[in-house]
Design a protein around this nucleic acid. Sequence first.
DNA 1: AAAGTTCACAAAATCGATTTAGCTATGTAA
DNA 2: TTACATAGCTAAATCGATTTTGTGAACTTT
Lengths: 339, 339
Amino acid sequence: MKKISLKDIAKMAGVSTSTVSFVLNGKAEQMRISKPIVEKVHQIVKKSGYQPNRVAVSLRTGKSKIIGLLVDDISNQFFASCAKFIEDEANEYGYKVIFCCTENDAHRARTLLNILNYQQVDGFIITPTVKMNKDIEQLVQYKKPFVLMDRYFPEINTPYVLVNNYSGIEKGMAHLIRKGYKRIGFVTVDLKMIQMDMREQAYKDAQKKEQPASKQKLLLKLPINCTDDREATMQTIISFIRDTELDAVFFATNYLGILGLESIQQIGLEIPRDIAVICFDDNDIFRLHTPAITVIRQPIDKIAKSSVAILMDQLGAGKHKVQRIQVEIDPEFVVRKST
Amino acid sequence: MKKISLKDIAKMAGVSTSTVSFVLNGKAEQMRISKPIVEKVHQIVKKSGYQPNRVAVSLRTGKSKIIGLLVDDISNQFFASCAKFIEDEANEYGYKVIFCCTENDAHRARTLLNILNYQQVDGFIITPTVKMNKDIEQLVQYKKPFVLMDRYFPEINTPYVLVNNYSGIEKGMAHLIRKGYKRIGFVTVDLKMIQMDMREQAYKDAQKKEQPASKQKLLLKLPINCTDDREATMQTIISFIRDTELDAVFFATNYLGILGLESIQQIGLEIPRDIAVICFDDNDIFRLHTPAITVIRQPIDKIAKSSVAILMDQLGAGKHKVQRIQVEIDPEFVVRKST
DNA sequence: AAAGTTCACAAAATCGATTTAGCTATGTAA
DNA sequence: TTACATAGCTAAATCGATTTTGTGAACTTT
């Protein structure tokens, strides 16, 4: 079928397209369209099932009612969950979501940003990659609405939403120390992004407070692309755990945790008898693992909702004014059997 | 900044917008635009970083270069992976992806389909929900390009891509029988969709062939909304396993498998000593479980790529003609420790 | 009764592209 | 020398909405 247009409705109602448009956009009163005509138009619209062509509306108004979601990798559980909540929430505001995966590649991210911009998306929710600061600065400069999620650049003043990483690690460390663990290792990744820095700092601070004299570094910092070669990375983790004689190990991300569990399995250590395990970021695997793994859980729903709210506020579509545009959400501490 | 338009380029080059458009769309030769002008335009375009406003192009051409992806729930590992491959592949063809979650609700699906249609998406990749047949028929009628994924309606002749469910279960059953298991249970869900029917049928056929005389039904068919109340469902599974005295259990989907593992853990049975476990559809959890779970793996990348290829073919954007528009992809059988 | 307001809508411009039809200058054939 | 073709562009229509400006009739005001 060919779709019904505004013109068709106008013809059917015997009025001009402007009149129909006014009626449909709630400007009938303002434009002094008479009641009978308003009703007639509404009736015809309803009967015909007319819906405006969003593309034409976009062109004219410059608003597409589409937001762009840029994440590292949508197949990652964390981002997939984010995406789901974001889509759901955006729907509430009448917005659709286009998503793209940056694969943590700044160049790819730039291309995508550019394309989406010309696709006329109204705004972005972005988990920025390393070296993406220039592009983010551009967005600020051009006053393009956006909000960063999961990370941000401390040197750029932008809206962002993320979990309070420092407090999460702090809680975890306090728990381990309370439980009496002495040699607590920390496995992280050298991402050079704020969220990882915070986690590492929190670990170091806790460590220093507890064992100020300790010389040996119980910290393993894996290269950024460590997931490319799972086997090699596992070997590194295995050596680390063996060499440092840990009694507890804290994994800084969920994929490190998963690799870590496999490594521990390979060594043949029993959790928590031989070694305690705790991980930042929850995952089905941790919940179902035997024993279940203690984690710092990110409240993904809150992160997603807050991000959307902040973006919508910038788009003028906000339901209620948001108070803060830089939000750190408290993580949940979930104690399970592994500690 | 305000973006550069075709008009601006035309002005800069001292030519008409039509000329610029012809040049940019590779119609310079056909329209007999002289070499010097072609080059001048190209140069100015490059220097200015001009990119056409996709919305205007959409309005004029009726092609948005956006496809709509409708899945049950993007936060589900399977769909998340699909989404990733689809986005990646669509990118290759210059298409963007808008996604929506149907939550397996036909009404919601209809609304989304409708909205996306007016959003001018060029085509759809859909994992249809139950009772969505009417809407799918409409798409066929209106000749809207689309392809079904993971399921289809046998009574409607449409393009679809899915794993060969029958053969997957068949392989799994053959394996179990070969291993000597006698009392093989099957836990499935009453979805009333083709993919589940096929799996069930394959199980029954294998069962009949092996133990034609067996009277007791070793089949548990859970209600469709069984994931809403995890605890209750686990109790049902626990009773089923206990009452039927299984020596092996086949879970028909990955979420059933996960519930099943938790149930088996609760009973305190040891895999595979007390009971063997096999599951349709892989998952990180199964790989990392102790012991690792034997699965029938869906080759998600192939499913995604094939779906996109079939859709692109309909959109006239296909790189190479696709041979078949109804594709069943062979699953992979991954033997692990649980059988 | 002429002039100014208000009413209730319609006409036309606009968004930024694509595409068809048209127009001018030059070259060629009759 | 006129007619006709061709080359090399441009003008204008178009997609389907929104929004500014216009307009005829009724009504007020002086």
